[in-house]
Simulated scan of single mutants.
Amino acid sequence: MRDGDWYPALTPELEAMRRTARIACHAHRMMAPDARGAMAPELAALFARVGRDCFIEAPFHCSYGCHIELGCGVYLNAGCVILDSARVAIGDRTMLGPGVQIYCADHHRDATERAKGIERAWSVEIAADVWIGGGAILLPGVRVGAGAIVGAGAVVTRDVAAGARVMGNPARPV
């Protein structure tokens, strides 16, 4: 899984990890707004790294959580989804708009293998000071450079250079 090789995603061990993530996301979602602070303690404890002054609006969903690294001052607006079957690193002061989705899983092309839950995972890295507009989707393996802007609704299929602005489906520089 960590090496980007094909693996069976339907094992009891991985299902237990996903269940732990669902419980943490539920705890975050159910906290009273005034009590929430940055995020539910269960969610913060799940992540690989949480920098200071991060804030995640509810609802939020992740697959495992343990592969997510947040820099300082990261903001995730309501409805963000991170399917972190591989490392997802989000740099300092980066902002994700509502409904942003980050996918690491790549399912097998063969229908028989796909039915068995065979997949592979590629990390997604977002550098510092990035702004990702609402409803954008980042596909497995992409890197977004420092200071880049991803337009609302963009589907990012390739790396985005530092300082670039991209939009559309597939996302292209503007």
Rank of each mutant, 00 (worst) to 15 (best):
G97S: 07
P59A: 02
A40M: 05
T11E: 02
C62I: 08
G168W: 09
V156N: 04
D34K: 12
L70Q: 02
Y7V: 09
D34L: 13
I102P: 10
P173T: 15
M95D: 00
L76K: 05
G117T: 13
R143C: 06
G168I: 12
V144E: 03
L96D: 01
R87W: 10
G168Q: 08
T20Q: 15
L83W: 15
G147S: 02
A161S: 10
V130M: 01
A127K: 08
I149H: 05
L139M: 13
G141L: 12
I23W: 09
D84H: 05
E13G: 00
G65L: 02
P170A: 00
C80M: 04
I23F: 11
L46H: 09
T157Q: 05
M17E: 15
W131N: 00
E113Y: 11
G163C: 03
D159M: 00
A115W: 02
G37E: 06
G4M: 07
A16W: 10
R158W: 14
D159Y: 05
G4L: 02
P140R: 11
C104H: 07
V74A: 02
S123I: 04
L43D: 07
V155G: 00
K116S: 00
Y64V: 02
A136R: 13
A89S: 13
A24K: 03
D3S: 09
R109K: 02
A48W: 13
L139C: 07
V174C: 04
M1T: 09
R143G: 03
L10I: 15
N77H: 14
R93L: 07
Y7D: 03
A136N: 10
V174Y: 09
A24I: 09
V144R: 05
A48M: 10
G91L: 09
H67S: 05
L139D: 00
S63K: 02
L96P: 11
D3F: 00
G134W: 14
L138N: 06
V142M: 03
C54I: 08
A44Q: 14
G99H: 14
P41W: 00
T11F: 03
R114S: 04
I68V: 15
I82N: 06
E42W: 01
G145N: 11
P140C: 00
I126F: 10
C66Y: 12
A105S: 14
I68M: 01
A58F: 07
G145T: 06
L14P: 04
A161M: 10
A86N: 12
P41E: 04
A32E: 15
D5T: 14
H108T: 05
L83K: 10
L96Q: 03
T112N: 12
G145D: 02
L46C: 01
W6Y: 13
G51I: 14
G65M: 03
I68P: 12
R114W: 08
P41D: 08
E119P: 13
A58E: 13
P98D: 00
G65D: 03
G37R: 11
E125R: 15
L46W: 11
C104D: 01
C54H: 04
R19K: 10
L138E: 09
L14E: 08
A45E: 13
E113N: 13
A171H: 11
D110H: 08
H61I: 12
G133L: 04
G133Y: 06
V74H: 05
